[in-house]
Design a protein around this nucleic acid. Structure first.
Lengths: 343, 343
DNA sequence: TTGTATGCGTTATCAG
DNA sequence: CTGATAACGCATACAA
């Protein structure tokens, strides 16, 4: 009397095996290691699967095998374009594989991060990708106790939990300032928002470059912990100009701020780059399109996502990388907004 | 000799129950329906859980209960800011609940969407959120066979699979054009990229508004299926000007294109809005900040995400909405770029 | 290459 | 309010 095609919950591996005339475990192997089956049985199982419309039960699989096929990804923001690119890389690279991505958003809160990591631990992910290197001690402990490959992304540093892929925000900040200095600018303002750990390291790059040139001056610095927007760029710039009118360049910790500064300059008839050089960070697509085109520091976000997933998957499958830390570097994209001063 | 605190895999509900002096099923109920326990046992279980550091096994739970606590979300793009906002709403609203979000990216491919839906079906999600109303017949069939609440987002239409939250892209396009016409403009160009179903409906709004004013002219239209960028906005605009030099306004299907048009105008010394009015779509944050500030159609993306999750969760828990279709509307944000022509 | 026996950790069912 | 028993659907280990 038992139905089988309807009430889709009914078709188990057993049914498939029965129809194919094999044992359940052979049918099971068909999915995990098809090559281990004789061609004949492989085809029999294959058609049985199709005929019955068999859909594997992931929960049963996970319970029996003690592992899932999900890779957890912990990022601090969904609205930040930077992470959108990283995520694209992650999803693109994971698609070919059998792993699926589970995303979690900390909103830049390390306590929230801790909570999410606890949640992940309950789920026994096959691998984990987390943003940055500033986890709490508890978070680190969780990560280390998780018995799965972990890749930290966006930046690099000593003492990785496991693997890392990113670049040095300090170096990138330093390089940006060195470039501006090389153009003959001296009063270089710093505009910062959000001030997360990576932004702070860019700031350190700025500070050290300025100090090395004996040009550091606290009056050149305007920061806020408020999230970044284009509008905020204009506001911060207005603050900076009010306090320090003689600036001849501005380094913005991201491109949204830089665009806001450009608009504010247009509003105030400040000529860019003649009166003011502008340099952003991340090299979002619009930077090249702006008038004047805006200099920025390109970061390889999409590649970061791709590498992170690849490294994790390789590690899951036993092929650990020779070096656990991958530096993807950055490129200074010099454009009109930071050309040399006429002298 | 058996450890228990280390090798965290060891602690099962049984261990908790033993320590608390109750049966496993009572310990189980502690998590799902604490009120059903006597205060005494509840406290005993509670401390046992804490003492042992018990972590529930989600796979076992899913297998035994025939349901998971994940809500699947299917979107066409991760880099599009529009979806970033929707996702933020989704994640924000899901956080308080016990449901976790599983994200899938179709990259605007309806075949990929079909594939992903099949994958979801294997996972027996508690609920599903999908983008748009243009699923393939197969996709629709899968959705309908899934036995869980489904919410379609971003737009509304007849014949929802289950529930819907969005707005009419046709109406929004029509309203934008009506506004431009009311400013005295006559030669209104249309710039479109990507041309996904929602963009096409905005186009239909444009077309009908123009036809109603007897101003429709194919030469005013430039579209491409290429993904949107700011740079592309400039390129499309250049094409349009080359073909139809006498335009006095441009409607862009999104804000990135609009920004690109603005930059291109700056490059060509075309005065906005004097020579050309510009209207975008979505009202991304930078629109208000641009010089001149750019008119756009605000869509309530964050709220869309929030409502979608809330509706799904409510439905999962048996409280279906009175009306299955929620229209969140749109607002025309009139700014400097589309003020009236001097006459 | 294939199959048998057994267990994974939890919850549903129904009785008390 | 509490508990005993029996699934849930699949994979591991080992044997053939």
């Amino acid at each position: 009397m038992g139905r089988k095609t309807t009430k889709s919950g009914k078709i188990r591996l057993t049914e498939v095996a029965k129809l194919a005339g094999v044992s359940p475990i052979t049918a099971s192997r068909f999915f995990r290691n098809p090559e281990a089956l004789s061609l004949a049985k492989r085809e029999r199982v294959d058609s049985a699967v199709k005929e019955l419309g068999y859909v594997p039960n992931l929960a049963a699989r996970a319970l029996a095998s003690h592992r899932t096929e999900v890779i957890g990804v912990v990022i601090p923001s969904l609205t930040n374009n930077v992470f959108a690119d990283v995520l694209r890389g992650i999803y693109d690279s994971s698609e070919g594989s059998r792993y699926s991505i589970q995303l979690a958003n900390t909103r830049y809160s390390i306590l929230q991060e801790e909570k999410l990591l606890r949640l992940f631990r309950a789920q026994k992910p096959a691998g984990l990708i987390v943003t940055g290197i500033n986890q709490t001690a508890d978070s680190r402990a969780i990560l280390e106790s998780m018995n799965c490959p972990v890749t930290q992304i966006m930046e690099i540093g000593d003492s990785p939990v496991d693997m890392m892929v990113g670049f040095s925000h300090y170096d990138a900040g330093f390089a940006a300032i060195s470039h501006i200095l090389a153009q003959g600018r001296r009063r270089i303002g710093f505009l910062g928002a959000r001030m997360d750990p990576r932004v702070q390291r860019r700031f350190e790059g700025y500070r050290e470059a300025m100090k090395a040139a004996s040009l550091f001056d606290p009056n050149l610095i305007v920061t806020t912990t408020v999230p970044t927007t284009v509008t905020l760029g204009g506001t911060l710039f207005a603050d900076l100009v009010a306090r320090t009118p003689d600036i001849d360049a501005v380094f913005c910790v991201n491109d949204d701020l830089a665009l806001g500064v450009l608009f504010e300059c247009q509003r105030r008839q400040i000529s860019v780059p003649r009166d003011l050089a502008i340099v952003g960070f991340n090299d979002l697509e619009f930077m090249a399109s702006a008038v004047p085109s805006l200099t920025s520091v390109r970061t390889n976000r999409y590649e970061m996502g791709r590498h992170a997933v690849t490294m994790v998957i390789e590690a899951i499958e036993g092929r650990r990388p020779e070096v656990p830390v991958l530096d993807l570097g950055f490129q200074l994209m010099v454009r009109e907004s930071s050309t040399a001063l006429d002298t």
